[in-house]
């Protein structure tokens, strides 16, 4: 299947969901949702004394008649919340012999569609040699283009080379396998800076979670090409599982520390894992 087909598949899947927008995320360009600030909607918010420069049309003349004081009426603003979708575009997300890249595309398309359903604007960032937006990323996911998982750089280097211009008070979702040896907080702090909400979705292939069968294995790093020859036995397999669990725990702890939410999914079981995204309050049924 091509990328387009995976995106279409994710788009179809996302029709059932809408992005769950937290109150803190109600900011942005004029839109269809009520924002936190005063605006031009018809929903009354508050009164305050007139100050020079205020629109004379907002003066409540009834109050002036009773109190002889110039008082203006404040109305809620109407905004469109924003979703910044950050995709790890490293080669590990297209691990050979796994549906990892397909699941990434499907999940991104699902979230993009859910954002559309939630009247949110959205942008899709590819973390490769710096952050770049995907072509046509403001359109429906099936129109996205330029999604390639070919980078050999980890995410932290991409932040260093060219950081993304993420919308303030936007919802930020990172989709990655998180397979690089770096302190999670350094990434999360950058993501959480000015964000209304941050979600970290770890998407792993089944092969990432289970060690190989016993025997001599030559491991090849999909990003660096580095090779290691090891003998896998029961002990080594157990050590691998422990290392993976510790890695997840470190990200989960860092997420809690920064107010982000951490969800781990398995590519082969993506459809069955979607309730986990609802539990994390990223998606709500449409």
């Amino acid at each position: 299947m091509s990328h387009r087909e995976h995106l279409l598949s994710g788009e179809a899947l996302g029709q059932r969901y809408a992005l769950a927008v937290p109150q803190t995320a109600l900011a942005g360009m004029t839109g269809s949702q009520l924002g936190r600030r005063a605006g031009t909607s018809i929903d009354f918010q508050d009164y305050r004394e007139y100050q020079p420069g205020d629109d004379l049309r907002t003066i409540d003349w009834n109050v002036f008649a009773r109190t002889d004081r110039l008082t203006i009426k404040l109305f809620r603003e109407e905004v469109n919340p924003h979703l910044d979708l950050v995709l790890d575009a490293s080669r590990s997300m297209a691990l050979e012999n796994t549906p990892k890249s397909a699941a990434t595309l499907r999940l991104a398309a699902l979230l993009g569609t859910a954002a559309e359903n939630g009247h949110c604007t959205h942008a899709t960032w590819l973390a490769g040699d710096g952050f770049q937006r995907a072509a046509n990323d403001t359109m429906l996911p099936s129109a996205w283009d330029g999604l390639a998982f070919t980078s050999r750089r980890p995410l932290d280097e991409a932040f260093t080379i060219l950081p993304p211009r993420l919308r303030r008070l936007g919802i930020r979702v990172l989709i990655s396998d998180l397979m690089w040896p770096v302190e999670p907080l350094s990434i999360l702090r950058r993501l959480a800076d000015g964000a209304a909400a941050v979600f970290v979705v770890q998407l792993l292939a089944q092969a990432d979670t289970e060690p190989p069968e016993h025997g001599n294995i030559q491991l090849v790093d999909s990003e660096t090409g580095e090779e290691r020859e090891i003998f896998v036995d029961a002990t080594v397999a157990a050590q691998f599982r422990d290392a993976l669990a510790r890695h997840r725990e470190s990200w989960d702890a860092a997420c809690r520390q920064t107010g982000a939410r951490f969800v781990s999914l398995v590519a082969e079981k993506l459809d069955a894992s979607l309730p986990a995204l609802e539990e994390a309050q990223l998606l709500v049924p449409a």
Binding site: E96, D177, W180, P212, V220, S222, R228, Q239
Partner: peptide
């Protein structure tokens, strides 16, 4: 039997312990 099966992994970071173990206990194996 001693030939190594090639396998691509997302990262070697989770196998660092095995590399160390193998290097440290290579003689045993």
């Amino acid at each position: 039997r001693n030939r190594y099966r090639r396998r691509e992994v997302s990262s070697l970071m989770l196998w660092e312990f095995a590399v160390l173990s193998r290097e440290g206990g290579a003689k045993v194996n």
